[in-house]
Simulated assay, not measured.
Amino acid sequence: MFTFSRAFASAAALAMTLTLSACGGGHHHGNPGGPGPGPISNGPTYDVIPIGLPGATYGEVTRRGIANGGVVAGTSRGADGTGHAFLYNGSKTIGLGTLGGDFSQALAVNACGHVTGWSATKAGTAHAFLYDGTMHDLGTLGGSDSEGTVITHCGQITGWAATAAGQTHAFLYDGRKLNDLGSLGGNSFGNGLNNLGVVVGYSFGPHNAWFHAFLVDSRTGGPLVDLGSPVGNSVAVDINDAGQVTGWFRNGEGAPTGAFLYELGKIRDIGTLGGASAEAFQINGAGLVIGASATADGSNRGFVYDGTTMTSIGSLPGGNVSIAEAINGSGLVVGSAATATEEHAVSWTRKDGIVDLNGRLYAPPAGLVLVRALAVADDGYIVVRTNQGLALLRPWK
C-alpha cells in the first residue's frame, strides 16, 4: 500500500503518520493552444520551469520559501547530504554561499529576494543570516548559535539564538540588531512573524518542564504573552496581520495532537476530521487555517478551517491520504495526495476541489511527475518537487 515519503510533523516530532515581486516582475504569456496531452481536470493551467541546482541531488523549499513573481529560496543537497542555500530570482538560480563554513540553509524569502536561514561559520557554529545580495551574519544573543526562520516584506526576521546564559531565546531582527524577546522561564523559539512586527512561537517554562505558545508585539515592547493551551503543551506556528494565530497542542508525550486558533484573546481547539489528531501548519490573511488531520477510518487528509468548519481537501482516485502544505492569500491550497501507486502534487480551492496538478501542465518535459507541491505565492506561482528535481509552476494569466 502506498504511503507518503515522510511524516507530517512539527519541530516537536509529532507522532501522526503520513514537515518577480514588488522589486521586479516575471513575464506571463497567453495560452497559444491549450494544455498539452494528458488528463485535464479543473483549475488553472501552468508552465513548468525547472529550477536548476547544479551538482544537487535533492532540493528543499519550505512553505515560506516563495514570493510573488516566481522568487524561490531553498536548499540544495549533494550526494553527501551537505546543504547549500540558493535563490531563484525569477530567471536564474544563485548560490548564496556561506558565512565561512561548509553549509547553509535558506528557510524564507520576501518579494525583494531577501532571504533568511542559517549558515555554518568559520568556527563551525550555525548563525542566522540575511541575504540581500550579500550574506550577512546576524550573530547571536551572546551564545554560540542562531537561526532565522521567517522574513517579512519589511525585512524583519524572527527565529532563535543562544544567549550568554546558555538558554535559547526567540529574537526579532529589526534591520539593525537582534532583539532578545525573552521567554516564559526556559528556552523559547520564534516560529511566526507578521508585517506589523508581532512574533509568535513557543517557550518552555522554568526548567523546561512544559511549553506554551506565545505572542509578543514588538511595537509595545511588552513581555511574551502566554497563549496557554486547550490542553497540555502548545506551539504557535503562524500569525496573520489581523493577529490570528494558529498552531498545535498536545497533552503529554505520545498523546494525540490537536490544532488551535487563537483570536480575540482566546485559544480554542478547532477539532479534527473525525480522527484523534490534527495539526495546523499555516494561516492566511483571511483567517483560513490549513493542516492535516486523522479521519475516522484511520487515514489522513489535508484540511482547511474557515473559523467554524474544518473541511477535508479530499483525496485522489485510488488513494486515501492527502496533506495541505501551504495556502496563499486567495485561499489556493497546495500539497500532495496518494494515488494507487505514488504521490502526486495537488491544489485545492472551494470552487474546484482537489486537483491533480499533473493534469494541468502545458507541454511538460517527457516523463515528468509532480510529486509534492511545497509552497504557493499570492500570485499563484507554486514550487513543486518532481521526479526530475525542483520546479516552478507559472500560472497563465
Rank of each mutant, 00 (worst) to 15 (best):
S203L: 02
G97N: 10
A9F: 05
A128E: 14
G65I: 09
V48C: 07
P39G: 07
L316Q: 00
L20E: 14
F204P: 01
G142N: 13
N208D: 15
S91R: 07
R385L: 14
N208R: 09
L99S: 09
D47E: 14
R176I: 09
G90R: 08
T152F: 13
A255V: 02
G302P: 00
R176W: 00
A345F: 03
Y173N: 03
D241L: 08
V237P: 00
L193W: 05
Y202M: 00
F303H: 06
V200T: 10
G367P: 09
L374K: 08
G228T: 11
T3E: 14
G275F: 01
R219A: 12
T220L: 14
D352E: 09
W248R: 08
A236G: 03
G359P: 06
V225G: 01
N31W: 09
D145S: 15
G155L: 07
S293Q: 10
V369I: 09
G367Q: 04
G101D: 11
N284Y: 01
T62D: 04
N284M: 02
S183Y: 04
H136N: 15
A375T: 05
V321E: 08
A165L: 06
W348T: 02
L196I: 06
I66C: 13
G389T: 04
P223I: 12
K92W: 05
E60G: 04
S203Y: 03
A11D: 10
T82I: 12
V333D: 05
L107Q: 10
L130V: 10
N191V: 07
N31H: 14
G319W: 00
A373R: 01
K351S: 13
Y131Q: 02
L288N: 01
D180Q: 10
F8L: 03
L87V: 04
F260V: 01
N208L: 08
I267T: 15
D378F: 07
I327G: 00
F4E: 03
T386R: 06
E60R: 07
G166Y: 02
S336Q: 08
G95M: 11
T3H: 15
N187R: 01
L14S: 06
